[in-house]
Amino acid sequence: MQDQPAKEHAPVLKRVMLKISGEALMGPQGFGLHPPTVERIAREVQSVHSMGVEVCMVIGGGNIFRGLQGSAQGMERTTADYMGMLATVMNALGMQGALESLGLHTRVISAIPMDQVCEPYIRRRAVRHLEKKRIVIFAAGTGNPYFTTDTAATLRASEMSCQAIFKGTKVDGVYDKDPIKYPDAKRYETVTYDEVLSKHLGVMDASAIALARENRLPIIVFSLDAPGGFRSILAGEGTSTRVEG
């Protein structure tokens, strides 16, 4: 009798938020969108979607324009932040194109209305898209200056009743110091919200961590550079750090 192939574990989570930085889309370039990198990330999302998981996304805009940097260079902060929000819309549209080229139905929903290119944010409509197994990309942050896309991801994840936020980074978890600079850096398996804040671990900004703590929303930090990393973490494998209460 032939051996049966081992079955992959069914995902524990049914609806998740994937938060990635705009810099993740740059690839080896120093600016903008690198199409092969965007396609690779889209395939990661496709592999998770094929498991039956409902996926929503928030993408930063730092590969095009970062509001804080503009503000630091003398630009008025509110204007700089709105420019950063527009950069996230550009990234969302780029990711939508990559996902739809793979046959995935995708909606870009913007906190700043721009009906010609994407939908305005209406919570019940966004939930319905997820129920119909469409991938939803939330763009333009919260629609307000002084809030980062980390906070936007936590807010939308809470509104969509996501079971976890997956923070895709260049390293496979949260470390006590920069593992790229310090070979003896220690990775945490789990860490509390309060430890992230008190030790300044840099998972997300303080507003996002506080919001996640209030809503008991776990944050899983993993490497987006590892092929199949997103899928393996959802299947209960791979290396990551879990931030929770």
Rank of each mutant, 00 (worst) to 15 (best):
I180F: 08
E195T: 05
N91R: 07
L201Y: 02
T148F: 07
R107L: 03
L104E: 13
D81H: 04
V196Q: 00
Q116K: 07
V127G: 04
A92Q: 02
T169K: 01
G67A: 12
Q96F: 07
I122M: 10
P120K: 03
V174D: 06
V171R: 07
R156C: 14
M90C: 07
I165C: 13
T79K: 08
V174H: 00
I137A: 04
A185D: 07
R134Q: 14
D205I: 08
R134F: 00
A98D: 12
E195Y: 01
E76P: 02
T149H: 01
L93C: 06
Q73F: 08
M95D: 00
E195Q: 14
P183E: 13
V196F: 06
D184S: 15
R128Q: 13
D172Y: 05
S207K: 05
T190A: 07
M90D: 02
N144E: 09
Y121L: 06
H105C: 14
R124E: 13
S198C: 04
A98C: 11
A153S: 13
L130Q: 06
T79C: 11
V108S: 00
R156H: 08
Y82I: 14
S158W: 11
I165V: 15
D194F: 02
T192L: 07
A210T: 00
M160P: 02
M90H: 05
Q163G: 15
L104I: 14
R187M: 15
V171C: 15
S161H: 08
T190V: 14
T151P: 04
A140S: 12
G143T: 01
M160T: 03
E195F: 02
P120V: 10
R134G: 11
S71A: 14
I165Q: 05
E100G: 01
D115P: 03
N144V: 06
R187T: 05
P113A: 09
Y175V: 15
A126Q: 05
T169Q: 09
V127S: 01
L201E: 03
V136R: 00
M85I: 03
Q96M: 15
T169P: 07
T148P: 02
R156D: 14
Y188D: 14
K170W: 03
T148H: 04
L130N: 09
Q73H: 09
V196E: 05
E76N: 12
I64Y: 05
I137R: 00
V203C: 06
E100K: 14
L102D: 01
C118H: 00
C162F: 05
R77V: 10
M85S: 04
V89L: 13
K170L: 12
H200S: 10
V108E: 01
Y182S: 13
D194P: 02
G67Q: 10
T78V: 15
M114R: 03
R77A: 15
E100V: 10
K133S: 12
L201P: 03
G70P: 01
L201S: 03
A157L: 11
K181R: 12
L197Y: 00
E131W: 01
Y82M: 13
N91C: 14
D178C: 15
D172L: 13
A72F: 00
A111D: 04
A185K: 01
R187Y: 08
T79V: 15
K132N: 11
K177A: 13
N91S: 09
K170F: 02
